[in-house]
């Protein structure tokens, strides 16, 4: 479970990216966060695994108080939370399998990592994760030789290899074309449903958000302005979240048609 209580984040430059947020996300929920760029979507996601520290307020993730964790406590928390990135963040020069094994680092002793020796159990888990996103045949291919959609599937496999209870996805389809975006979103949805993992996704395309979300959270200037099921989220609601009328840029289908 994730619980923000009265949580705020102000960056050193003075930008307030989260304002008095109260939000509870139950285990197994598929939550999509929408909002304009700069509304605080990335900040919210990165607060969950401690990449962005709260300036004030409380945040509980899986019974841990994120604001008071020491370094090793933070590593323990992060091992339970998988993350997927807009730019995939793969090491291009190494193989797909080694990239996925990065998800096992928390469980591996440092000397084994230094020597590049991964345990059989870790390789087994990495292979299972690759199989789940149907890219296991590319295990020994260099990551630089994959297409964008394939890379993001490797990114998902790396998160899955952690055996996480939560997966955070920060604009996972922003660098992909529409058909590939749907493939990636379907994998995320399937993972949430079949493995009972809580999935939190940042999106800026409204049609993608309503198509996949169980629950939509709308942010505007760092504050929560909408929280409800995807079915309740119509054009009027989005206009209130965005604070302007909708344009073709806001939906993937219409943007693709341009």
């Amino acid at each position: 479970m994730i619980r923000f209580s009265n949580a705020s984040v102000t960056y050193p430059g003075g930008v307030q990216a989260m304002r008095d947020l109260d939000l509870t996300i139950e285990p197994g929920e598929f939550v999509v966060i929408v909002g304009l760029s700069g509304a605080g979507k990335s900040t919210l996601i990165r607060a969950v695994n401690g990449l962005v520290p709260l300036t004030s307020g409380q945040l509980q993730v899986n019974e841990r108080d994120v604001t008071t964790l020491n370094r090793s406590g933070m590593r323990d928390l992060r091992s339970e939370v998988g993350m997927i990135f807009q730019g995939f963040n793969l090491v291009d020069r190494t193989t797909v399998l080694k990239n996925v094994l990065m998800g096992r680092l928390h469980e591996a002793p440092t000397w084994r990592t230094l020597l590049g020796l991964y345990s059989k159990a870790d390789v087994h888990l990495a292979a299972q994760a690759l199989d789940r996103v149907e890219i296991i045949d590319k295990a020994y291919v260099r990551a630089s030789n994959l297409s964008g959609g394939q890379r993001q599937r490797v990114g998902i496999a790396r998160a899955l290899a952690q055996e996480p209870s939560i997966i955070l996805a920060d604009e996972p389809v922003a660098s992909l074309d529409p058909p590939t975006s749907h493939v990636v979103m379907r994998y995320l949805q399937q993972i949430g449903r079949e493995l009972g993992i809580t999935v939190i996704v940042n999106l800026h395309f409204l049609d993608l958000a309503t198509a996949y979300a169980d629950r939509i959270i709308g942010l505007r200037d760092g504050a929560l302005v909408f929280d409800g099921p995807g079915s309740e989220c119509d054009a009027d609601v989005f206009e209130s979240i965005y604070g302007r009328s909708l344009t073709a840029d806001d939906t993937m289908a219409k943007q693709a048609a341009l």
Partner: peptide, 29 residues
């Protein structure tokens, strides 16, 4: 590329593990 560094840190890797898996492969050639 700082991306893999962020990914390793987000997975709960230690500093040495992060350097070995996310940084060294990039500079090895």
């Amino acid at each position: 590329d700082p991306g893999p560094v962020e990914a390793a840190n987000a997975s709960g890797a230690g500093l040495t593990q992060m350097l070995r898996t996310a940084v060294v492969p990039q500079i090895l050639p």
